[in-house]
């Protein structure tokens, strides 16, 4: 009797929220899966037609390549930068603890600033006649308009790192804090140097944290679209035309069949990435 009651209590707490999740996310997604197999005109069954239309769409392929390039460059870069910052903060340690705490809060400021407010600064900073080029000109370099052409991708990666480095640094530090002091002492007794200790003890011990950092960095990498859209609108320079732009422009042109197929493909891709990461993480 008591157990029965407890069981229903669980449903009592979860059901209101889960009903909302069903209504706004799950059930309509099932409809999207159905739509991905039918024509937008007349609604006849077209098999994998929409999928082949998406996968042979030049803009989509281009954008997928750009997004992959951004993600594959951005995530390792972000993880490396934030690892250095975290190591620096840990290195300050003991005596300079207050300074370290203050620096850590400072690194977190970018994640609090709404994208729409910051973007004004970035626009002026990376403009052809902007602040960055002004500084470069002191040293005799003449810069370009950073938001057009190939450099735009690096502007994007910079913005991504600027925004997320603090967040990721905090994650690294939490990972380091999880390694018990006694492990380090044992290493010291065995005469292991700082580098060896870091490489052979800290890194393997915080492996689960590293994979979670990768996952959260991936999650945050999708949100770079905000900055791109705010900086460059619906049709940005070619190297930063992302998958999100394609979806948005399909939406504006009412190509619901393509969005449906694209959403299913993207969903599968993300699920595969999560699955892979989880597998490595649980090993």
């Amino acid at each position: 009797m008591n157990n029965m009651k407890k069981k229903y209590t669980g449903y009592f707490f979860i059901l209101p929220a889960f009903t909302g999740v069903m209504i706004f996310y799950i059930l309509p997604f099932l409809d999207v899966i159905r739509r991905s197999f039918v024509s937008v005109y007349g609604g006849g069954f077209v098999g994998v037609g929409n999928y082949t239309a998406v996968l042979t769409n030049g803009a989509f392929l281009k954008a997928a390549g750009n997004t992959a390039r951004f993600t594959l460059l951005g995530i390792p870069f972000l993880m490396a930068v934030s690892l250095l910052l975290a190591l620096g903060l840990v290195g300050l340690g003991g005596k300079k603890r207050q300074a370290a705490a203050l620096l850590k809060s400072t690194f977190l400021v970018p994640m609090a600033l709404p994208a729409a407010s910051v973007v004004l600064f970035f626009r002026l900073f990376f403009h052809g006649k902007g602040f960055l080029n002004a500084v470069l000109s002191w040293f005799g370099f003449s810069g370009t308009d950073w938001m057009s052409g190939k450099s735009a991708l690096f502007v994007l990666i910079f913005c991504y790192i600027w925004k997320n480095a603090g967040y990721t640094t905090v994650l690294w530090m939490a990972g380091f804090a999880g390694v018990p002091e006694s492990v380090y002492e044992a290493a010291r007794v065995d005469g292991a140097g700082a580098w060896n200790t870091f490489w052979h003890i800290t890194i393997p011990m915080i492996r689960p944290v590293i994979f979670l950092i990768a996952m959260i960095s991936l999650l945050n990498s999708f949100q770079i679209y905000r900055e791109v859209w705010l900086l460059a609108g619906n049709y940005p320079a070619e190297p930063i035309y992302l998958v999100q732009h394609v979806f948005h422009n399909w939406f504006l042109s009412l190509s619901m069949d393509k969005i449906a197929a694209g959403a299913v493909l993207l969903c599968i891709l993300v699920a595969i990435i999560i699955g892979l990461l989880q597998r490595i993480w649980e090993r």
Binding site: P28, F29, V270
Partner: peptide, 10 residues
Amino acid sequence: MMPFQVTMLS
């Protein structure tokens, strides 16, 4: 984990 573009149409 899903980006907005996955659930946008739904």
